[in-house]
């Protein structure tokens, strides 16, 4: 296929799988905002090809994405796809679900994530459509898992067992990660952001930091984050954890002094974090959301 540098047609994601490890493929999303030029393709997805069957990780941001992803997978392998693991409920990972259901494939997701999708799905879809345009989101609907799981699960793809592990209450109520022991590759979903500021509104910072410690100890050689490029260096996890700690401490201390969030936001973000993609927006949003959260439940102690 000859790819020119021309801008993709609205509706055409131009998806190309990259073989990140033997039998492990990644569709890299753009490190960008939700834009009409990318159709919301800002998160990473992928698939693992076993001797007998194929497992997909994440369903993509729209119906069109999911359809084009299935086509791209079938152009790569003729082994049957058996299931998709949806790492969490955010739109960039979950809005392709109905396509998988229509193809008779299992959709594996945490029930906590499924509940969030029920609660927020339509509002999210409206926002995404406003930002990227209906040419991309046409036909997209909110789906539900066929297989909600609350316990770690192993999936047999023939020559390899792939592990689906559960992380609750860190980034969202229910995040799943997928580990391929054969290649020591970890699909970490949005538990790991690389070069991009993590989004905290549905989670708990300390729980999330604990989960990063757990992931750090696992025997992976390469990690495919929910956003950003491949992670081979474990300090990426430390850096994320540091940012989350900084964020929580700044807001907790400020809240405990009685500041208005307007006053908190006057303080500069430390240099270490100003290079993260999306810091200008997400930092402000996180500060405001943590203030609202602490109005409901007391903030942690100021360290």
């Amino acid at each position: 296929m000859a790819l020119s540098a021309a801008v993709a047609q609205a509706g055409d994601y131009g998806l190309a799988p990259f073989e990140t490890a033997p039998g492990v493929y990644t569709f890299w999303g753009e490190q960008a905002d939700l834009l009409p030029s990318n159709g919301g393709n800002i998160a990473n997805a992928g698939f693992i090809v076993g001797a007998k069957s194929v497992l997909v990780i994440d369903a993509g941001p729209t119906r069109r994405y999911a359809e084009q992803m299935l086509d791209a997978i079938r152009a790569t392998t003729d082994r049957p796809i058996i299931a998709v693991v949806v790492t969490h409920h955010h739109q960039d990972h979950s809005f392709g679900i109905p396509v998988f259901v229509e193809h008779g494939l299992d959709v594996i997701m945490h029930p906590g994530a499924a509940a969030m999708l029920v609660r927020d799905g339509d509002i999210l879809l409206n926002f995404v459509t406003e930002l990227v345009g209906a040419a991309w989101t046409d036909g997209t609907t909110i789906g539900a898992p066929t297989h909600p799981i609350t316990e770690a699960t192993s999936i047999d793809l023939g020559d390899r067992d792939v592990d689906v592990e559960i992380f609750e209450g860190g980034h969202t109520p229910g995040d799943l990660v997928v580990y391929d022991g054969a290649t020591k590759t970890l699909f970490a979903g949005d538990l790991v952001f690389n070069g991009r500021v993590p989004t905290v509104p549905h989670g708990d910072v300390q729980t999330w930091r604990g989960q990063l410690v757990t992931l750090d100890k696992w025997d992976w050689r390469r990690l495919i984050p929910g956003h950003g490029p491949l992670v081979a260096d474990r300090t990426v996890l430390d850096g994320m954890s540091d940012y989350l700690a900084f964020l929580e401490a700044r807001v907790a201390c400020s809240y405990r002094m009685g500041d208005s969030p307007a006053e908190t936001l006057m303080a500069e973000v430390p240099d270490a974090y100003t290079g993260l993609f999306g810091i200008d927006r997400e930092y402000q949003r996180a500060v405001l959301q943590l203030f609202r959260k602490y109005d409901e439940t007391a903030p942690p102690p100021c360290p």
Binding site: L34, A43, D92, V128, T199, E282, Y283, Q284, R285
Partner: peptide, 17 residues
């Protein structure tokens, strides 16, 4: 990612009254 993202390049906290 959460929702409602749009492009902007100005730095956070760059200019308050």
């Amino acid at each position: 990612m959460f929702f409602r993202l749009i492009a902007c390049s100005a730095l956070m906290a760059a200019g308050f009254a």
